[in-house]
Design a protein around this nucleic acid. Structure first.
Lengths: 240, 240
DNA sequence: GGTCATAATTGACCGCAGTCATTATTGAAC
DNA sequence: GTTCAATAATGACTGCGGTCAATTATGACC
């Protein structure tokens, strides 16, 4: 029973300073029960094989109640991703306090997440995949805390790197963070599918970090300037 | 009715040199009818709003027949992705014949695919998303021609670039192609979700290409060598 | 305690993706 | 033309995700 959904953080904010009403406490408890029941079952029998009714049964609520808390079945997976990000934030503290080179910081973040994934490949696969679903439909309102936080972190690290001279001054950190995130995400998904060794995974991530740091062009011939239009523009994206 | 599924290529191979039996011809025709009916309907009313029974109705076959050809509803989307890749291959010919710099070649490929996507944002979103599904489950046997071909193309372009001195000799093209693909994929998905202008999309892709070519590290301090273990190893992945 | 608006719970119900046992078609062999 | 095994078509049926109208719990206010 390695790594059940984290006990402290749940998937909501931890800022529970004001004492909660009974109602609120009950709600959280129910939510937690459903969440927990769901992941026990997912782990035991897989996602597709688990029905909402089973989850409701184990959480000791009606089927409809499950949908009150998690409007789609896949919302349960998104909750897991959020949970993991909370674990990460909790474990590593605010970015400003991290030590080491830019590269080391990035590797530490990746390491934390890959370790979780290596322990729970099935859940990781589901959660990673789910974290993309919100991109599918423009109507979906989910805010996808998971990826957002990851991007914000990566971006901060790059920013620090700029100040320390380890990252190009003129780098568009928004885009770079975006690329790092998507490369990491894809690498992890591929690995989860192919079920290689953890060593392979780390090696591949390291190699890709090399590429992102060094670039593809040879050292001298900086870059091949052929872009027809270069419209300088505030990057769209996830930062506000 | 812009861009219906391509008429010539369908989703199967074009190598129809040996004359086909009547049976085989019938099969292809039925498959084509279903494919076409499905995409007319998807375009008219959206994916979720279209039922398999409607598709079967319009293609003038029984419901079960649809499932004979496309075992899941989403298989129809995967077929679209394949179709688009065939269009691309057909339009641009073998990689060896392309002209221009490495950067220009990559931009031309992206341009072709983004143009298709700009014309059919809804279908593109669905197809792009679907093209990731095969990574979700290790049991899925789909071979995902789409992404594979794209990777092979990108890799060839990088290889040529190495010969022309536009790409670092010691670059692991397998990984680099992989990163380029995932960055492109993600950029496109994000754009499709946010519905910006086509100009925005091109600018973002261009900016990311800059990053991939130049790298994140400053010119002088090549890279920050901190990786604990550097296991040189044949890249796993999609090339055979 | 009693009243009442608001919020939470619930399970009967619905629609559709996907299955499968049955039936129809094909074409090779004679 | 007839036979027959292999292949394809079919739609009745099933199971589950998701909805919603009805029911119950909660707590603010008197």
């Amino acid at each position: 029973m390695a790594h059940p959904p984290s006990r402290k953080s749940d998937t909501g904010h931890d800022t529970t300073s004001p004492p909660l009403s009974r109602r609120e406490r009950k709600k959280r408890e129910v939510r937690r029960n459903i969440f927990q029941a769901a992941f026990e079952l997912f782990r035991e029998q897989g996602f597709d094989e688990t029905t909402i009714e089973e989850i409701a049964e184990r959480a000791d609520v009606g089927k409809g109640t499950v949908f009150n808390y998690f409007p789609r079945k896949t919302s349960l997976l998104a909750a897991l991703a959020d949970d993991w990000m909370s674990l990460l934030a909790e474990e590593m503290g605010p970015v400003e306090t991290w030590r080491g080179t830019t590269r080391q910081k990035l590797e530490r973040v990746f390491r934390f997440l890959t370790d979780l994934s290596v322990e729970n490949p099935d859940l990781a696969r589901l959660a990673l995949f789910e974290s993309l679903r919100h991109m599918q439909s423009p109507t979906s309102i989910r805010d996808e805390r998971g990826i957002r936080e990851f991007l914000a972190m990566t971006r901060s690290v790059l920013h620090q790197g700029q100040q320390r001279g380890e990252v190009r001054e003129n780098l568009e950190t928004e885009y770079a963070a975006n690329m790092i995130e998507s490369a990491f995400h894809r690498t992890l998904m591929q690995w989860l599918r192919e079920q290689g060794s953890a060593e392979d995974l780390h090696a591949e991530i390291s190699a890709k970090l090399d590429i992102i740091f060094q670039g593809v062009a040879p050292r001298e011939a900086a870059a091949d300037r052929s872009r027809a239009h270069r419209r300088r523009k505030a990057p769209r994206g996830t930062a506000k």
